[in-house]
Each structure stands twice: as structure tokens, then as C-alpha cells.
Design a binder for these strands. Structure first.
Length: 293
DNA sequence: ACTGTCACCTGGTCGC
DNA sequence: TGCGACCAGGTGACAG
């Protein structure tokens, strides 16, 4: 599921329940997600106040009053929901999980603010880890991640430079979290479509031989900005698992131009192309061969 | 050092 | 209705 817009949607949904609140009790319903929990995981969280809830790439980062940071990744199928207490869903939530869905409720944060925050993850590709803020720069999961695409430092010159010596495709380069943070399969496909660039194009062609960014790089950066901002505004994309913390679906999937549209007509004005799918680096790429060059 | 492939899991969908 | 094959939003560990 979760690429940058979905994780950002989740962060905004969790903020009211978590920021400034204390984790009275942490319930671990199994010993592992993708990895085993650290032996002192619960002990370092219980009784701590969440001073702020941030995001870096696809990671949620909760700052604690102890000087620790809780890192959380949703993998492919992770979601959070906020419930009024340990048993009842928030009034007004659209999503009331069936009992077999609750089987995948793996972590429960009982917050001093009243509600509980429940982490659900059927595939368990997600994970959580706690580390000291003073060692954040050495934290393996985040230390090599590239710039935030909606941050000030991400621009055409920066992206062109990061891709300059790459021997791989534009699609693979944009999925590489050390090039730019937070993009996944959906938003890479959508951004390439919006900038009319082929997913097969060599990433190095974003710059000239002298290293100057080409116009392509500018268009691509604009497209990345546009698609991410629109998706965040829509509460992310809900295909199978993603829900906002209230239980509502995101609705950006209705705005997909190419993703999951194999065989359907291209949406570019005046283009008579048909959206095609092929497998690139083991993942589905959707694109219009007629207008993406 | 870089790039591509596989593995980790569960569940939904499709064709027979 | 059942069964197997295949697919899925990510990324760390490998092999080349």
C-alpha cells in the first residue's frame, strides 16, 4: 500500500490521538512483524509522551520525551486506526473490521488522551524499531534516504545530479529511495506519465553531458510535486488495504491516469494511445507508449 | 560500487 | 464450490 501520500495521511490522522499524549500501555500481540521486536521495545515506550509525530520518506517517526524515537514502517499492507477505547471503534468510523481482520491487529497503543491506536498488518512486511535520537544519523533504515520530494532541496538540478551516473532506467531510479524519498510503484508510474517520459528511458538522460539538468528533469519534478500534492489532498490511494485512520478510504485511485489501467485509452489530450503494462525490475509498469518518450 | 532478483507474508481474484 | 496459479502499494539480503 503505502507510499508517501498514504503515510502522510496516516501521520495526520494519528497526530490528534498521539501528539502530546502518553503511551500508558503498549500491547504486543505477537513477537514479530517483519523482524522480531527488540527485547526492550515495550519497556522503552510505556509511560513515554509522544512529543511529535513526523514522517521521513515512508517512515513514521514518533519523538518521545525520553530522547528515543519510534520508527514505524507500514510495509505493503500496514494500517493504523484510532478507536475510542480498546473495544469500541470511534463513533462515525466507516470501517468496522470483521473479526478475521482483527486477527491482524498486532500492536495496540493505549494512549492517555483516551483513544487507542491499533496497528493492523496482514502481510507483516511492516516493522517498528526504537532508537536513540542522538544516534539518528547512524540509523540504518533512514541514514541513506534521499531528499523529501516536497521539500525545498528537491529540484531539477538535484534530481539530475542524483541520476547522472546511473545506468538504470528512470523507473528504477525513481523507486530508489536514495535518489528521492517516498515514491513507490503507483506514484512513479503516474509522475512519469504526467511528464510524458518513458519508464524505460535511461535515468542519466535527465542531465546533459556537462551535468546540467535538462528540461525533462524540470517537467519530472513538477509532475512529482503535482501528483503527490493531489494524492495527499485526496487522503491517499485505497486499492486493497489503505485506509485513513478514521477508517475512511482515500480516493486518489479514482484519479490514476495509468496505474492499473492496462488496455484502457490514454488520458492525454489528443493522444489515441492505449495504456500498456510490462514488468520492469520485477514490478508492473503502466504507461502510454505513444505519448511517453 | 552498482544493479537486478529473490524472499518475506497473507489474501484476493481468475481460470479451470 | 474448490483448487491452484498468479498478483499486490516495500525493501533488506544476496548474487553477479
Amino acid at each position: 500500500m503505502p507510499e508517501l501520500p498514504e503515510v502522510e495521511t496516516v501521520r495526520r490522522g494519528l497526530q490528534p490521538a498521539m501528539e502530546g499524549a502518553r503511551i500508558d500501555r503498549l500491547e504486543l500481540r505477537r513477537g514479530d512483524l517483519r523482524f522480531p521486536f527488540q527485547p526492550d521495545f515495550a519497556a522503552r515506550l510505556q509511560g513515554r509522551v509522544v512529543t511529535s509525530l513526523g514522517r521521513r520518506a515512508k517512515y513514521l517517526l514518533a519523538d518521545l520525551d525520553s530522547g528515543d524515537v519510534l520508527l514505524m514502517h507500514l510495509g505493503m499492507s500496514g494500517s493504523f486506526r484510532v478507536v475510542s477505547d480498546g473495544t469500541n471503534e470511534m463513533p462515525g468510523a466507516f470501517h468496522h473490521p470483521r473479526s478475521d481482520e482483527r486477527a491482524h491487529d498486532h500492536v495496540v497503543f493505549h494512549m492517555s488522551s483516551g483513544p487507542s491506536v491499533i496497528y493492523n498488518d496482514p502481510r507483516r512486511f511492516g516493522f517498528m524499531k526504537i532508537f536513540a535520537r542522538s544516534e539518528a544519523e547512524q540509523e540504518p533504515f533512514i541514514k541513506d534516504i534521499g531528499p523529501e520530494p516536497l521539500g525545498n532541496e528537491f529540484d531539477a538540478a538535484m534530481l539530475a545530479e542524483a541520476c547522472r551516473n546511473k545506468k538504470t532506467s528512470l523507473k528504477a531510479a525513481l523507486l530508489d529511495q536514495t535518489v528521492v524519498a517516498g515514491l513507490g510503484n503507483i506514484y512513479v508510474c503516474e509522475a512519469l506519465f504526467r511528464s510524458h517520459l518513458s519508464p524505460r528511458r535511461l535515468a542519466a538522460t535527465l542531465s546533459t553531458k556537462k551535468g546540467e539538468p535538462t528540461e525533462r528533469a524540470t517537467h519530472l519534478v513538477d509532475a512529482i510535486h503535482d501528483v503527490l500534492n493531489l494524492a495527499i489532498k485526496a487522503g491517499g490511494s485505497s486499492l486493497r488495504d489503505h485506509r485513513q485512520t478514521s477508517g475512511e478510504l482515500g480516493y486518489f485511485q479514482h484519479s490514476f491516469q495509468v496505474y492499473d489501467r492496462e488496455g484502457e485509452p490514454c488520458k492525454t489530450d489528443g493522444c489515441s494511445g492505449i495504456v500498456k503494462r510490462f514488468v520492469q525490475n520485477g514490478r508492473s509498469t503502466f504507461w502510454c507508449p505513444k505519448c511517453q518518450k
